[in-house]
Nucleic acid binder design. Structure first.
Lengths: 209, 209
DNA sequence: CCCTAGCTTTATCACACGATAAATAAACAA
DNA sequence: TTGTTTATTTATCGTGTGATAAAGCTAGGG
């Protein structure tokens, strides 16, 4: 990044919480583009302020990054999704498609996916935590609802296979997003179509379809 | 990384090509662990040499990184895989399972997968090139062989769906590797079992199974 | 055994980095 | 209008960075 410091007009004075929230929001898109090793000077330029300003709001660069993690990963989950996934008044395939439509509306964009991958490679705990959450709130509910629909019981014997099947659905959908938003390569179906097909294939993989 | 420079014994003197190859190989595992922003001093410490030595063999840090890309991405493909995938004397599912068993033996390790993700986030051309290659040498052959086996014709109408179906197989398998080798989280089946199941599900998604 | 080619190290440069302290200026209350 | 508060900027520190130049050392040929 080229940090040309052109003659700047003094940054507008803003209330503490407003500026703080603005820094978190804009820094997220900045680090998503340039990685967490990008400099605080370039960040300041991106924000339209000067470099030391950040230190009024966060004790260190890393503290700011931690805050971004929180806003991105913890804020991703919408609590109505738990109810949506387990609403047995509706056909299970319909629920799964609607859930993945909504979930991917949140995570399938360049900013979210790149921050997720950057964080994962940094080896921060929050990504392992996030995967554990995905398993608890998506993978296992999906298994449970499919099992209930088909009339199968989850046993210690078939559980490993069922877990990996559900993870495979998740992974297939996720990788579509990686291709499109991280690598910028071609995809051949709209998101919704791809999800519908994936859910169909997944549901059909259970014994009595 | 802590670059403690303990009293070192002078590095063994080695012929040009030997040392050069050693640097590429060891630097690959170094950058896989610490990312491409890790310093040349820490790299030298990792190699058991001093920092300026690298510059006898590569004009810049980035030139070394480019060489690592080549060795990892171009070197990944084994030419017998083309023949394996299209060997119509054998059942198609068997071929797909054997191919993915072998392919994942090469790429499913912490070093390969982390370098792949690091490179992708850096936005280097080689990753887009690699994805194009995957599509040409895996995705399309898989489609073609399945179509031939089932007796279906690939048309402009069904091609997008068939492409995404094959990508979904690839993505599901790949994400298993990401979970295991990048995030270090639990997986519930051995690699071979997961592949066998995935290929089965994929094959069954075609009309006449 | 010595000598030279060339592999390896020491010393150093110019600059970029995260972070801190002190000065400046804009908003708001009296 | 004036005084106080606090958001923002300027100036700077100590350290780490990729890279270069010159000196040091070791293996192999004679």
């Amino acid at each position: 990044m080229n940090s040309e410091v052109l003659p700047r007009t003094r940054a507008a004075r803003k209330p503490f919480e407003v500026r703080r929230a603005e820094i978190v929001r804009k820094a997220a898109s900045f680090f998503a583009q340039f990685g967490f090793d990008a400099t605080t000077r370039d960040l300041a330029n991106w924000l339209g302020t000067t470099q030391p300003l950040m230190y009024r709001y966060f004790p260190s660069k890393n503290a700011l990054i931690e805050e971004i993690y929180q806003s991105i990963f913890v804020g991703a989950w919408k609590k109505e999704w738990d109810a949506l996934l387990s609403d047995r008044t509706r056909p299970v395939r319909e629920r799964l498609v609607e859930f993945y439509d909504q979930y991917t509306d949140v995570i399938m964009n360049s900013e979210w996916m790149r921050l997720y991958l950057f964080a994962g490679l940094r080896g921060v705990d929050i990504t392992r935590l996030y995967i554990a959450r995905v398993e608890e709130r998506i993978i296992r509910p999906v298994m449970r609802e499919m099992a209930a629909d088909i009339g199968t019981t989850i046993t210690p014997e078939n559980e490993p296979k069922l877990l990996e099947l559900a993870w495979s659905l998740q992974g297939g959908i996720f990788y579509y997003g990686v291709r499109k938003f991280v690598y910028g390569t071609a995809v051949y179906q709209e998101k919704h179509e791809m999800i519908a097909t994936s859910v169909d294939v997944y549901a059909s993989s259970w014994p009595k379809a």
